[in-house]
């Protein structure tokens, strides 16, 4: 029974990982950009929420209303002013600039907020649990997180599949040059993609901050987990990303059950195993693993 509990925890954790992963794979799909500061942006969002909670006395879940638009605008600006200039110059500039951003954000957070760990407190919901029968109980908050993740994925799926903007994303992802010939303003489109990516990762960051403590240096691990979830699930598939997140989550909770220090490592090993055995991921559409 305790094992079932571990697996359920892992599945719900996977929802959170899927959120992190989705932002990353969206911008990679549209513009072949890997944002090494992806995780750091989620932690930045969590710290902005900390400030909002302190200054405005808001519940962290309500702080989402403030933080998400702020991060979206930040993403749009970052893309249009900085990152758009690097596209078409090979991967080196983009990797190095986002890496530099990661260093700057982490150290900026360290200077501003010190090295203390923080946690966002939504007033009790995070500890409440829902009994499922048979002695199994599931936390309300992990359930909520998973639900929000699924909801966002559905929303994103609808956006990409049914709207003109979504068609533009897919067209640009297929062939940026021809997309421009259709009248698509790639510069603006990439800005919107990054805005969307950071908005999603802001939600992920706040939910993370409620679930667990975080510090200025928590960002890079989020990037790694996002990356692993994307690779396990397979590039080019939104629902694959959810499955990838779930597999990673279950691997981590199972590993942690065996020995506390082994959680994250177990996730890494599963990731490496998938990489060895099915490099294209479990649900990928036929597309290569490269930029």
């Amino acid at each position: 029974m305790a094992w079932l509990d571990t697996i359920v925890q892992g599945i719900l954790l996977g929802g959170l990982y899927a959120l992190f992963a989705t932002g990353l794979s969206l911008i990679f799909g549209v513009m072949r950009l890997v944002n090494l500061a992806h995780g750091d942006f989620s932690i930045l969002a969590a710290f902005i929420a900390v400030v909002a909670v302190q200054v405005l006395d808001l519940n962290p879940l309500l702080a989402l209303i403030l933080v998400v638009p702020v991060m979206a605008v930040l993403g749009y600006g970052l893309q249009r002013l900085v990152l758009n200039r690097l596209l078409g110059r090979g991967i080196l500039p983009a990797v190095l600039v986002t890496f530099g951003l990661s260093i700057v954000i982490q150290n900026g957070l360290l200077e501003t907020f010190s090295a203390d760990s923080r946690r966002l407190n939504p007033g009790g919901i995070e500890t409440a649990s829902l009994p499922l029968g048979g002695g199994l109980a599931v936390g309300w908050f992990p359930l909520l997180t998973f639900g929000v993740a699924v909801l966002l994925l559905v929303g994103l799926q609808l956006l990409i599949g049914r709207t003109a903007l979504g068609r533009a994303f897919r067209a640009a992802s297929d062939d940026g040059g021809t997309a421009a010939l259709m009248g698509i303003d790639n510069g603006r489109l990439y800005g919107l993609a990054m805005a969307l990516s950071l908005a999603i990762v802001a939600v992920a960051g706040i939910f993370l901050g409620i679930r667990t403590t975080f510090t200025f240096s928590s960002g890079p691990d989020r990037l790694l987990f996002a990356f692993e979830a994307v690779i396990i699930g397979g590039l080019g598939s939104l629902w694959g990303t959810l499955v990838g997140g779930v597999i990673l989550g279950v691997a981590q909770t199972t590993g942690a059950r065996l020995s506390p220090g082994w959680g994250v490592l177990a996730g890494h090993l599963v990731f490496l195993a998938v990489l060895l055995l099915r490099p294209a991921g479990l649900f990928s559409k036929p597309r290569r693993l490269d930029s």
């Binding site: 090494l36 693993l289 490269d290």
Partner: peptide
């Protein structure tokens, strides 16, 4: 991997 994913 290649490119950005190679880095990660």
């Amino acid at each position: 991997f290649s490119g950005g994913y190679f880095a990660v």
